[in-house]
């Protein structure tokens, strides 16, 4: 599932970040910011206009990502153990 499709509030884990095109700086930056395999995250807020941008809680940080940016992140929803 893409991060942009993740419902608000449900916990998930990053799978990987895909480049939208060759040498995609936005994807690289997402990886540098910690969107890497196994990192837990959550959508904590959704922008009031057109549901954009999204506010993502990852680790102790909150990042505002536009939907197009969030669509690069593929996540998996892990069943709580």
């Amino acid at each position: 599932m893409r991060l942009s499709e993740l419902p608000k509030g449900s916990p998930a884990v990053v799978d990987r970040v895909d480049d939208a095109h060759a040498s995609d700086p936005i994807a690289q930056r997402l990886r540098d910011l910690g969107f890497v395999d196994g990192e837990p995250l959550r959508v904590v807020a959704i922008g009031p206009m057109g549901g954009d941008p999204l506010l993502i809680q990852i680790g102790s940080t909150r990042f505002a990502l536009r939907r197009a940016e969030a669509a690069r992140v593929s996540v998996r929803v892990e069943v709580a153990a």
Partner: peptide
């Protein structure tokens, strides 16, 4: 081209 928001709150 697409320019990112990627803003830390």
């Amino acid at each position: 081209s697409e320019h990112a928001l990627l803003m830390e709150l």
